[in-house]
């Protein structure tokens, strides 16, 4: 599928991941243009409904960039996000949509350069799966 440009929704926390993204930018590593970034107060605010609605709207992948374990400013926001992602993945499995389209990555301010590895990994994973059957990429 040579022309497939995955549409990725990325929720990221305003603390560690935001700083990490900024430090990546300072090193000239930018977020690929097909990532729609949504900055949120804490990954604990990412609701199952947000993830579902992004999938329903046809996103090819929906990911969360969270603070590392123990680094969450609200203590357990990243753990809650992980559990909600597990819930959505199970639901997707039940309805026959690839659960790998949803996931979580941990990232902090000192890891700026590894942003490239994360976005690359997401892009490879989603490219392998192909466009979401719900069609945002086709419509775009």
């Amino acid at each position: 599928m040579p022309d497939f440009e995955p549409k990725i929704i990325l929720f990221y926390c305003q603390f560690c991941p935001d700083k990490g993204i900024n430090s990546a930018c300072a090193s000239n590593i930018s977020m690929p243009s097909n990532f729609r970034k949504i900055r949120i107060p804490c990954t604990g605010t990412v609701d199952i409904l947000h993830l579902m609605h992004a999938l329903e709207a046809g996103a090819d992948g929906v990911f969360v960039l969270a603070c590392k374990e123990g680094d969450c400013h609200n203590e357990t926001g990243n753990i809650k996000a992980q559990k909600r992602i597990t819930y959505v993945r199970k639901l997707m499995e039940d309805i026959g949509l690839e659960p790998e389209r949803v996931g979580i990555y941990y990232f902090n301010s000192s890891q700026g350069p590894s942003l490239k590895n994360i976005t690359q990994e997401i892009l490879e994973k989603i490219s392998e799966l192909g466009p979401s059957p719900l069609g945002l990429s086709e419509a775009a």
Binding site: D47, I48, L49, M52, H53, L55, E56, L91, M92, D94, I95, G96, L97, P133, L134, G135
Partner: peptide, 17 residues
Amino acid sequence: TKEVGILASALKIARKK
């Protein structure tokens, strides 16, 4: 209300697919 939203979304995704 939230569970209604989640179920509706899951059913719509499954059927649209």
